[in-house]
């Protein structure tokens, strides 16, 4: 069933795959982000409670959701690398880490900028923001661990284990923080008190979600190619590629 994947364990094939996918991912990401953002900013109806400030949702929610799923994707890649001994999977994991960290940063920043007009403070120890902050710490841990290793092969494996430890912890952190939050400040208004969001508000959100996902995939392909070059520096095909790129 997974046979078709096996050729891509070879770095050269993975590199070529990234090159082929890349333009499509970029076009899709730009189109979705443009459509979703313009739709959300200009055409979606106003929220009756929060006015126009709720339009931050169109970047806050996609980045928050995808910051978590990128971490899960990293853990899956690490597991694949561990089970089938694929070096390429570890490289993909490392390629994703900074992208996920940037997504987490965006979710935190937009959360703060949304919180200021809604709660009157830039930072409130709200459950979602707090677990997002801890997620950022987890990303920083993985990136820092990988960065400390001189031997990138070994560093990839070590960072993979850390990503797996983290992913077991992500749900525990999420629920513990949520529970801690209700314990300490049950009275704060949740942003999504009303779970049934109007469809004309939801559609731009879904388009932007797709746009963010495609953006993450596109940047990951670029970073995966970089990672392959770093680790396969002395392979003839990399040398040939570099010499061609230089001219």
């Amino acid at each position: 069933m997974w046979k078709w994947l096996h050729p891509y364990a070879k770095t050269e094939n993975a590199y070529q795959l990234c090159l082929t996918l890349q333009p499509w991912l970029w076009v899709g990401a730009l189109a979705c982000l443009l459509i979703g953002s313009v739709w959300g900013l200009a055409f979606a109806p106003q929220d009756y409670q929060q006015g126009d400030s709720f339009r931050i949702i169109y970047i806050h929610v996609p980045s928050a959701i995808l910051s978590m799923s990128t971490y899960v994707a990293m853990a899956v890649a690490a597991l694949v690398g561990m089970v089938w001994q694929w070096r390429t999977a570890y490289m993909a994991m490392i390629a994703m880490a900074p992208v996920g960290a940037v997504m987490t940063f965006i979710a935190l920043f937009t959360g703060a900028a949304w919180g200021k007009p809604m709660w009157g403070a830039w930072w409130v120890w709200d459950a979602r923001l707090t677990s997002e902050l801890i997620l950022l710490f987890l990303y920083i841990g993985v990136i820092a661990l990988y960065g400390t290793f001189e031997d990138k092969q070994q560093g990839g494996k070590a960072a993979g284990i850390m990503a797996l430890v983290g992913v077991i912890n992500v749900p525990i952190i999420h629920y513990s923080v949520e529970w801690w939050n209700t314990l300490h400040q049950g009275a704060t208004i949740s942003k999504f008190d009303n779970p049934s969001i109007a469809p004309e508000m939801l559609w731009p959100l879904l388009v932007n979600l797709l746009g963010f996902a495609l953006f993450i995939a596109a940047v990951t392909t670029v970073r995966l190619r970089n990672e392959i070059i770093v680790r396969e520096m002395h392979r003839p095909w990399v040398v040939k590629l570099a010499q061609k790129g230089e001219k």
Binding site: I134, F137, I140, G141, A144, N169, I173
Partner: peptide, 19 residues
């Protein structure tokens, strides 16, 4: 580095223990 890796992982324990 050890502290960076471990402190986020220990947060749930801290929450449940203090509560």
């Amino acid at each position: 580095l050890l502290a960076l890796l471990l402190i986020p992982v220990f947060i749930p324990l801290l929450i449940f223990a203090t509560s």
